[in-house]
Amino acid sequence: MEKKILATVNGMDITSDVLDRTIEQLPPERKAYFQSEFGRKQLLEQLVSIELINAFGLEIGVDKEQMYLTQMEQVEKEIRFNSTMNKIMSEISVDDADAEIAFNQNPGKYGGQQSVRASHILVDSEELANDILKKIVEDGMDFSDAAEEFSSCPSKAQGGDLGDFGRGMMVPEFEDAAFALEKGEMTKEPVKTQFGYHIIKTTDKKGFGTANFDDVKETIRTELLKEKQMDHYTKLLEDLKSKYNVTLK
């Protein structure tokens, strides 16, 4: 397919292909704007401006100055380094068998991130908290009804439900109690924190069991690939130090 020439600056063509590739390299939040007709026209003007300045730079001999030559040398080294690293790393792979061996050696490691879902009733005094516990345990009062009636936390509107949370998201005393409970279990006595006295009920737990291999296979492969690449890179550097002359001063 013939590339459409959008502009010519000092004999240098700017084609639709160049414009498209420039847009593709933009961050997603900017790409959408420059894909519009107005955005493409604006970007084309920027590319024209770049070619004009480049043409003028050649005219005044910037490409002969030492700073320019030094920077170009550095850019060339960076491109060569990145291209070489891409070639080296592309030759390293991890298959499903490698991932399964790693999984079987330590299945507990891949249980997933632990989180719980809990509801609570927050009051100012331990005495009131014990009275509420008695209503729930002995009198059969529903936990969510008790939360709506007695709790001072805004979560009372949801029956005390705080949603899902992981480690480090709640104060330690509350977190330790919620994570220690089994699913559906309630604290047998009030839990004191800086906010008051809590009656806590854990309604769900996630990430506590051993994961299914198929669910974590790609995660393991990615982890193993990074390890293999780093090991290969470290060994390669040692080999290259022996192959090429290195003098530290």
Rank of each mutant, 00 (worst) to 15 (best):
Q35H: 06
G11F: 02
L43W: 03
R40M: 03
M12N: 07
I53G: 06
R40I: 05
Q42P: 03
V18N: 12
N10E: 07
A32C: 00
L43R: 06
V48F: 04
Q35A: 07
R30S: 14
Y33W: 06
A32M: 07
K31Y: 06
R40T: 04
L52I: 15
I50E: 15
K41M: 09
M12W: 02
K31E: 12
N10G: 03
P28Q: 12
D17F: 08
E29K: 10
S49Y: 08
L47S: 11
F38N: 13
E24Y: 11
V18P: 02
I14S: 00
S16K: 01
V48H: 00
L26P: 12
G11Y: 01
G11C: 00
I53F: 08
E37C: 09
I23F: 04
Q42A: 12
S16D: 12
L52S: 07
L47Y: 09
L26I: 13
S16C: 01
I23N: 06
T22R: 05
R21Y: 06
N10P: 03
N10T: 01
R21H: 13
P28R: 10
D20C: 01
R30T: 11
V48R: 07
I14M: 01
Q25S: 14
T15I: 02
D13L: 01
S36V: 05
E24S: 14
D13V: 00
L19R: 03
I23A: 04
Y33A: 00
L47M: 15
D17G: 03
T22S: 06
E45R: 14
E29F: 09
R30V: 04
Q25K: 13
S16T: 09
E51K: 15
S16F: 07
S16W: 08
R30P: 09
P27S: 07
E37K: 10
Q25Y: 06
V48Y: 03
V18C: 03
A32N: 07
I23Y: 03
R40D: 03
E45H: 15
E29L: 09
F38A: 07
E51H: 06
I53T: 10
G39M: 05
L44V: 08
Y33R: 02
D13W: 02
I14K: 07
Q35W: 09
Q35D: 10
R30C: 09
P27G: 03
L19P: 07
F34P: 11
E45N: 15
Q25R: 13
G11M: 06
Q25D: 13
L44F: 10
Q25F: 07
F34E: 13
T22H: 00
E37S: 15
S36P: 02
